[in-house]
Amino acid sequence: MIEVKDLVRQFKSGDRTIKPVNGVSFELEKGSLSSIVGKSGSGKSTLLSLLGALDKPTSGDVVVDGVSLAGLPDGKLTEYRRRDIGFVFQQFNLIPNLSAVDNVMLPMEFAGIRKAARLKRAKELLEQVQLDPEKQSRRVNRLSGGEQQRVAIARALANEPKLILADEPTGNLDEQTGEHIIELLSSLSRDHNTTILVVTHDRSLAQKTERCFRLQQGKLTEEVRTGSRR
């Protein structure tokens, strides 16, 4: 269970104070698949970074399984990111001089998993995201955008995190691969009880999530859904 309590993040821009996240509160059930939609610059990525402990809120708190992130020191926050969070960044943020399989193995290396085990899992994950086996040992800067996105998703899944935060996970994928990724994320939440929060512009993707939030001027509202996913 993830509880977001009156979360505020503000920045100074000259004389102005900007609040991309302004008093946001919501809860995510364990194993849920949710989405946040909103215009560019509406604060979606800022909210993701607060949930993922990449940034610290100006006020408010994020509580994960009863543990408040606000009180944790940097070392514990790093551990939280390593153990509990899987990020899928909009720009992939892969390490360019490493191969696809090495990129996927990185979070497992930081978690202290032995090389043979992490190599096996990395290959399995890359197969799950449908990356051609011959491309697994290729440097990621020689892969296409869609392929890099799949490697980024595989990396996010590496340590079997409790929460996956995905920023436009299908933005660079063709329709068929995008569908596959959505199905993969759905199965993760359904079968592995992984909580998934997706930021997207893709209405069709948002439609496929259990809950959909709209972020507008720093405020979060939940859209009322008529149908059911899955």
Binding site: E79, R81, R82, L106, F110
Partner: peptide, 11 residues
């Protein structure tokens, strides 16, 4: 990126 995916400072 390394920090975001959980790399400790010492690593």
């Amino acid at each position: 990126v390394l920090k975001a995916i959980g790399a400790p400072n010492r690593t």
